[in-house]
Structure formats: C-alpha cells, structure tokens
C-alpha cells in the first residue's frame, strides 16, 4: 500500500464516519436515553443509560404489539421466501431448458413484473373477492407475485451453467421429470438459492408499502407497520421510537454479517450482462 492509498483511506473513513455511521450512532444513543433526554433530539451522550427499560417498554407497548409484529413478519417472510425459491427455480428451469415460442411471453411478464408498479386498489378488489384481503395468507401470495420476476431471472441464469448432460443421464437412469428436478437440479442450485433467500428475506421483511395497503388492522401488524404506528404514538417518546428502529435494524445487520457474499451476488446480478 502506498502512502497515498493510506491517506486517502483515512480521509475517506473520516468522511464516511460522519456521513454514514453517525446516523446509526444517533439511533443507538437516542434509543438508550431517558424520555426527557431523548425528546431534545440532540446528538449527545445519554445522561442515564436505560437500554433494558426502554427495550422492555417497547416490547410491552400496546399489549406486546411488537412481538406479534415480529411473529407476523417472520411467518410472511418464511412462507413467501419458500414459495419464491420453489416457484422461481421451477419456472427458471423450464424457461432455460425448453426453448419455445412461449418463452418470449414469459420473459415479457418477467420484465413487466420487475418494472410495473402494482395496481393497488384493483389488487385489493381481487383479494377481497377471493377472501384473502387483510389475511397473512394473502400477504404471502402478494409477496410471491411481486418477487417472482427477480427469482426467476436469478435461477434461470444459474441453471444455464448446469450441463444438460446431467438431466439426460438422469433420464436414462429412469428419473421422472419431478425426480430430475428435485434430486438432480435443485441440490445443485444451492448457491443461488441462498442468494434468493437472503435478498428476498430482507426485502420482504423491510417491506412497508404492501402491508400498509393489504394488511390493515391491529392483529396483522408487521414490523415496519409498528414503526409507522409508533411514529404517531411516540411523538413524545423518541427513546422508545428509536429503540424500535434499532430493533428493526438488527435483523438485516446480522444477515449481512453472515451472508454478505450472497447479498452482493444477488444485488449485482445484472451488472455484468446489463
């Protein structure tokens, strides 16, 4: 490393600390302050540390609403991501392996799925008519419908790297289409599957807009909605509001620490080919 690289690094780190790290420090400091201390909104060392008090108080607010929200968000995320992996891999597989005029149509829909904003009120109308409006099940399927295009694209391009000889060898070994897919192809998709799981989990867990529209009501609250609800309620209790923000920020941080390679792979999938 040259002297120049060292100095540039130090200057960059100083700037990045102010611009990117400071807001997170602010979140943390405000979250552990007392009510009066936090209400001043200033950037200062807490007069007294109330980490546990604030933590427990946030959890207990409105009859343990946050715990319910974590439970709901987890259920939605787990089921939606499972279906996204399964459906995405199956569509990507047929799309990549079986050339047909239909493929162009499917690609058209995939691009539409990536670009077009969902038509919210008509979607509510559809959900109501099939009895899924305001239900966790409906929310799961909505997340599947909206995340499908991205999953299909990732899986399709990965499946292109698996030699077709393997399918044919399995075919000669007497495998049915389902056996070829589940016993030969799916186990080989592990790297891209991890990427899809991680990226989609974060995006579904962080989703605010869709629960806002499709999941109104207290019993179906999700983590992001609690923030929104508390924003009004905690107008005078910034310490609790920021404790909530802190709690919502922690899951992605943990996932990032363990899976940053897969996140990077998923987020930059389009960068090389364009």
């Amino acid at each position: 490393m040259t002297r120049r690289q060292l100095y540039t690094g130090i200057v960059s780190l100083a700037l990045a600390s102010v611009i990117f790290i400071l807001p997170f420090v602010f979140i943390f400091l405000t979250a552990v302050k007392s009510k009066q201390d936090a209400s001043r909104l200033i950037f200062s060392w807490p007069v007294e540390w109330q980490f546990w008090e604030n933590f427990l108080q946030v959890l207990q607010t409105r009859n343990y609403l946050l715990l319910l929200a974590y439970f709901n968000s987890t259920v939605i995320t787990v089921f939606a991501v499972t279906l996204l992996v399964l459906f995405g891999a199956m569509v990507g597989y047929v799309l990549q392996r079986r050339p047909s005029p239909w493929n162009k149509v499917i690609y058209g829909f995939v691009l539409a799925g990536l670009m077009i904003p969902p038509a919210v009120v008509p979607t509510i109308w559809v959900l109501q008519s099939i009895g899924l409006f305001k239900t966790i099940t409906g929310m799961i399927f909505i997340q599947v419908a909206y995340g499908l295009a991205f999953s299909v694209l990732l899986f399709r391009s990965f499946i292109a790297t698996i030699p077709r000889d393997l399918d044919e060898a399995a075919l000669i070994d007497g495998a049915t289409p389902l056996q070829i897919f589940f016993r030969v192809i799916l186990p080989l998709l592990k790297p891209v599957t991890v990427t899809v799981i991680v990226v989609q989990s974060i995006s579904i867990f962080n989703d605010f807009t869709n629960p806002l529209y499709y999941l109104p009501g207290r019993e179906n609250v999700t983590v992001q909605l609690t923030l929104y609800n508390f924003q009004g309620q905690f107008q005078t209790q910034f310490n609790l509001l920021f404790m909530n923000i802190l709690l919502v920020t922690i899951p992605p941080l943990i996932i990032y620490i363990f899976f940053n390679r897969q996140i990077v792979a998923g987020m930059t999938a389009g960068a090389v080919k364009g």
Partner: peptide, 18 residues
C-alpha cells in the same frame, strides 16, 4: 430412454456433482 435397455456414457461423463 429408460425403457430401452440402454446405458450411456457422456462426453462430459455427466456425474452428479452433489
């Protein structure tokens, strides 16, 4: 293919990597 009483060895061997 599986009902023809044949077996095939591929150019790439096509061994299941997992």
């Amino acid at each position: 293919p599986s009902k023809r009483g044949i077996a095939m060895v591929f150019q790439s061997y096509a061994l299941y990597p997992h």
